[in-house]
Simulated assay, not measured.
Amino acid sequence: MSGFVVMGITAFAASAYVTLDMSQARPEVHGPAHYGLLVAHIFTGTVAVVAGVSQFWPGLRSRHPRVHRVMGRVYFAAVLPSALLGIVCAQLSFYGLATSGPLTVLSVLWFASAAQGLRTARRRRFGAHRIWMIRGFALTSAAVTGRLWGLLLGGLLPDADGLLVFTTANWLSFVVNLLVAEWWIQSRGYTRALPSEALKPSISSRSAQSSASVA
């Protein structure tokens, strides 16, 4: 159910850009080039949300592993460019560091988590891959939780400065998500299930053992 809520809010937020009408852009933009970057960021981010939700659908992963892998590739293909576009768009903000700061940090962490998720999957380290996917989707979901925080703070503090509310909502959107993700990872024991590198014999030690057995 929560996945459908996330996708619904994401679709609603992206709907303002379907017509490609620059006047409907929620943040102020410098011109067509800035708007084009923003639209590309939003639509690749929307794809990332939809593909990311599918990765946490147990039935899909167990019954249709091929579809799970394909959607995983779609997720990474969407997140990596969207995160880079997010960094660029953050620097073009009209309001300086107050808005560019949290969005830049979010985008860098988003890119890094996706890169680690892809790296661990390619190396077939599926325990670590699961952990990085949880962290990565916590960051992906910031597009949704940021709006919810904005509505909550706006309702609780109707007389507060709008920029302060927006900036606070942006920080909370991913900091709280990451804290919840780390709590989930630790409470489920996912880190304890990872193989210890110290227990894995190195190449040199295996070679020495082989030489000893031959001798």
Rank of each mutant, 00 (worst) to 15 (best):
A212H: 13
A212F: 11
P58F: 04
S204E: 13
R124D: 12
F166T: 13
R188N: 15
A51M: 07
A215W: 10
S210I: 15
V67T: 13
A115R: 10
R63V: 04
S211F: 11
E197D: 15
G155W: 14
G52R: 04
S107F: 02
V214F: 11
G36H: 04
R125D: 14
M71A: 12
L60H: 03
S141T: 15
F166M: 14
P158C: 08
S213I: 11
Q55T: 09
A193Q: 15
A98Y: 06
L97K: 07
P158I: 13
G136E: 00
H129C: 07
D161P: 01
A169I: 02
V5Q: 07
S54W: 06
M1A: 13
A121Y: 03
G52V: 01
A11E: 07
Q186C: 04
A138Y: 05
H34M: 06
T46W: 15
S23I: 07
L60A: 08
S54D: 04
L109M: 14
I185R: 01
E28H: 09
Y35W: 11
S173C: 05
A40W: 01
P201T: 02
A208E: 14
L172E: 00
L37Q: 04
D161K: 05
G31K: 06
G136H: 04
V88E: 11
T44G: 00
L139A: 10
R135N: 08
T168I: 10
P158Y: 07
L153P: 00
P158Q: 14
M7W: 01
G162Q: 15
Q55I: 08
L109G: 10
S62A: 10
T191I: 13
T140M: 02
M71I: 11
F94Y: 13
L172I: 06
P27G: 05
C89R: 08
F137C: 01
S173L: 02
T99F: 07
Y190E: 13
L84G: 15
V214T: 13
P102R: 11
S100E: 00
A215C: 08
T167H: 05
S205N: 02
T104I: 06
G31M: 04
W110F: 13
L118S: 05
V67Q: 09
G127E: 05
M71W: 10
I185Q: 02
E182S: 06
I9G: 01
M133Y: 04
M1Q: 07
I87P: 08
A115E: 08
F4N: 10
H129V: 11
G8H: 10
M71G: 01
C89K: 03
L106T: 00
S15N: 14
R123D: 12
V108D: 01
G117L: 09
M71Q: 12
W184S: 08
V175A: 12
G52K: 06
R26S: 12
V180D: 01
N170D: 07
A169G: 06
R122A: 12
V74F: 11
Q55E: 07
V180A: 11
N170K: 10
Y35G: 01
L60W: 03
A115K: 04
I203S: 10
E197S: 14
S202A: 14
G136K: 07
L38E: 06
G72P: 03
T167K: 10
I87Y: 06
A25N: 08
F111H: 02
R66Y: 10
G52S: 04
P195Y: 03
S82H: 06
W183A: 13
V105M: 09
V18E: 04
L80Y: 09
G127V: 03
A13Q: 13
L148M: 12
